[in-house]
């Protein structure tokens, strides 16, 4: 006998989690279930990827140091064998972390990972799926998209390669006045400073973005390949999602793990980003895996206080 129940028993977060799972599975993503406990070693080597030192650990009956689910992405990378093509996986898991020296928290996370033979089309598919996820979370949403390789190339052309961590940190704050001060201290040529500032101030419709970036590249003498960024913009345009997408080079991630396209999602009424993702080929290499990877996580815990917002769930 089929099981029936009243949908009203589900709270808002549960409804969103199921709507997202449906979206990902319809897009061809297979569910990934993570073990509750995994070897601590995997996480201790990649603590800065997690953004926290605080992981719940214990010694199991065989004397091995184990961790209680601090992250899903690392687990997926380790447990997905190298193979032909791209593996498409989605998940919905509780993870356990402490941030900024605070207490441990249980965080409900849902998301997707595309791993292995990842090309421009896979990256575009993941970004478009991120945009569709945001449209489920709330009626007013925004997705900020950046290309950290391109920003890195502009910083190198400006002669700031030794200061790239600082440039990325200032870029993440939209702190253009201190980037200008840094350029003056390092005697950066005026046209390259203007190109770097121009890239970081960029605010234009998605359709115009490749053209504007192209002219800034010429100005700065950057020959970086922007085919992936262009493919992402084209896909968003084709799926009629581009009106809520902003090209914004203040989106940044840890360069030891991330590369290429990085993005963050926001919905009106929540003061932090509710979605974060990008390409992490560098993390794949660090973990001895072949190919590339792209994915994102939705932070369902940040939606707790959101009123029933009526996103596109049906």
């Amino acid at each position: 006998m089929p099981m029936r129940f009243d949908m009203n028993v589900l709270d808002e977060t549960e409804l969103i989690a199921y709507a997202l799972r449906e979206l990902y599975m319809q897009a061809g993503y297979r569910r990934y279930r993570m073990s509750k406990f995994e070897e601590y070693d995997l996480y201790s080597r990649n603590k800065s990827f997690l953004g926290t030192d605080e992981i719940v650990t214990f010694t199991d009956t065989n004397g091995k140091l184990m961790a209680l689910k601090p992250d899903v992405t690392l687990s997926i990378i380790r447990n997905t064998p190298d193979g032909e093509g791209a593996a498409r996986l989605c998940y919905n898991e509780n993870v356990y972390r402490a941030a900024k020296g605070g207490p441990f928290k249980e965080i409900m996370q849902t998301g997707v990972e595309c791993i292995g033979g990842v090309d421009a089309s896979c990256v575009s598919e993941v970004v478009a799926l991120a945009a569709r996820s945001l449209s489920i979370l709330g009626p007013r949403w925004a997705l900020a998209v950046s290309d950290v390789d391109l920003l890195g190339a502009f910083a190198r052309r400006a002669g700031l390669e030794d200061e790239s961590d600082l440039v990325f940190a200032l870029a993440a704050q939209k702190n253009l006045h201190e980037i200008r001060a840094l350029c003056r201290r390092k005697a950066v040529a005026a046209d390259r400073e203007e190109a770097l500032i121009g890239l970081l101030s960029l605010s234009c419709p998605v359709l115009k973005a490749p053209e504007r970036i192209g002219s800034l590249c010429v100005m700065c003498g950057v020959k970086e390949d922007i085919r992936v960024l262009k493919a992402v913009m084209d896909r968003l345009e084709a799926e009629d999602l581009s009106q809520n997408v902003q090209l914004d080079f203040s989106c940044a991630g840890d360069m030891r793990y991330y590369n290429g396209i990085i993005f963050k999602g926001y919905i009106e009424g929540v003061s932090q980003s509710v979605l974060s993702g990008g390409q992490y080929d560098s993390l794949m290499r660090r973990m001895g895996k072949k190919g590339g990877a792209a994915g994102f996580a939705v932070y369902l815990d940040r939606l707790e206080r959101l009123e029933k917002a009526g996103g596109d769930r049906c």
Binding site: R140, A144, S273
Partner: peptide, 11 residues
Amino acid sequence: ICNKASFRFKQ
């Protein structure tokens, strides 16, 4: 200073 989410919706 500016809130990162507010920047998206009240730019």
